[in-house]
Design a protein around this nucleic acid. Structure first.
Lengths: 191, 191
DNA sequence: CGTCGCATGTAACCAGTTACATGATTAA
DNA sequence: TTAATCATGTAACTGGTTACATGCGACG
């Protein structure tokens, strides 16, 4: 299965009709947040393509004190394509982390800056974890909420918590060691 | 800091001279493996660009019973650029996971296929964890190995282990529930 | 005698990002 | 009146992937 903005849109629409703007919102805020990202610049063209291919249909809806919006929903063909995509094998995960790249070269980073960077990441993780917890609580309220959604959310939560814990537990040792090594090399250079 | 193949090459070369081919190998096998990925099609052009910009220099080296290779190393300017890139703030991580996308819609997946997919992912995690452990052991042998490298490796290990554990602990419940719900809806449809 | 590993590269392609354009309404 | 939110979209660009081209030596 090649996860692209295209399949992402099908997935979001399988949960109910939505406009392009709302799809974007769900990527930013909903349970999707941690795994997917797509900007307007990729969503709108994808939606148009999906309409062309007959996988979705759009209906313009007027709103009070808001611009009109085009609400899309899956067609039978769209449902078929979506369900079929779920029978394939998922491709490999791809993680691109500037942060880990940086940590990899921590020895070259000023300990003070290093501390700041890790602190910031830690704060970010905590925010994300809180958001996910809130999302999980929301889900628990609704009975008959999809099993997959809570499984995926739990998965993300487990991973984020592990990352948070690792950073919390190892940050001081790393920063301390880097600082110590720096002092040492400074002394050596002076001799 | 915008992590790109360009900065990736600088990072790899900061650990010692290497050819384009060797850089690729390190991305595939070394401690970089879990965080970065780049093919020849992006590495070779990046290297040429870096030479043009004066950040690295290449020297052709003959080898016995192997094709010649071009070994690159950082120039002073290259070191400067690399170190400076480490003073910036890292961008947000981007994870693209077909697997989590699929799990999100587990309710629509045939339980048998679901089991197979999760099993495969679990096996993959175990392989990766073993590889990382071996890599960590290698590092421990060498004294004076960079602190950042083991920190980054430990971080990856922590995350992968958490993912593995979550999958192991929750897989049966998920598959069971999906199967049960399917049976139920089948019965309801029959009525 | 085939094919795998080493080694370098190019060209076409594609997906997605960024920046821009438009415009109404609402809250500070 | 300024900024923010809702809402849709386009055009240019960038970065990276894929597939191809080339060639030698080793191994089975």
């Amino acid at each position: 299965m090649a996860m692209s903005v295209r399949t992402l849109c099908l997935g979001v629409l399988s949960r109910g009709p939505a406009s392009g703007y709302e799809i974007r919102k769900q990527c930013e805020e909903g349970p999707f947040r941690c795994f997917f990202d797509a900007g307007f610049g990729s969503i709108y063209p994808a939606l148009r393509k999906l309409v062309q291919d007959g996988l979705i249909v759009g209906k313009e809806e007027a709103q009070v004190s808001k611009p009109d919006k085009i609400v899309y929903r899956l067609t039978d063909l769209g449902w078929q394509a979506f369900l079929e995509s779920l029978t394939e094998l998922p491709g490999a995960d791809r993680l691109k982390s500037d942060f880990v790249f940086m940590m990899f070269f921590a020895d070259y980073i000023d300990p003070e800056h290093l501390g700041k960077v890790i602190e910031k990441r830690l704060a970010w993780y905590r925010e994300e974890i809180a958001r996910m917890r809130a999302c999980a609580a929301d889900m628990a309220d609704k009975s008959e909420s999809p099993l997959g959604e809570s499984f995926a959310l739990g998965y993300g939560l487990a991973v984020y918590q592990a990352a948070e814990r690792y950073l919390k537990d190892n940050r001081d040792a790393l920063i301390g060691s880097v600082a110590a090594r720096r002092r040492q090399t400074t002394v050596e250079a002076a001799e």
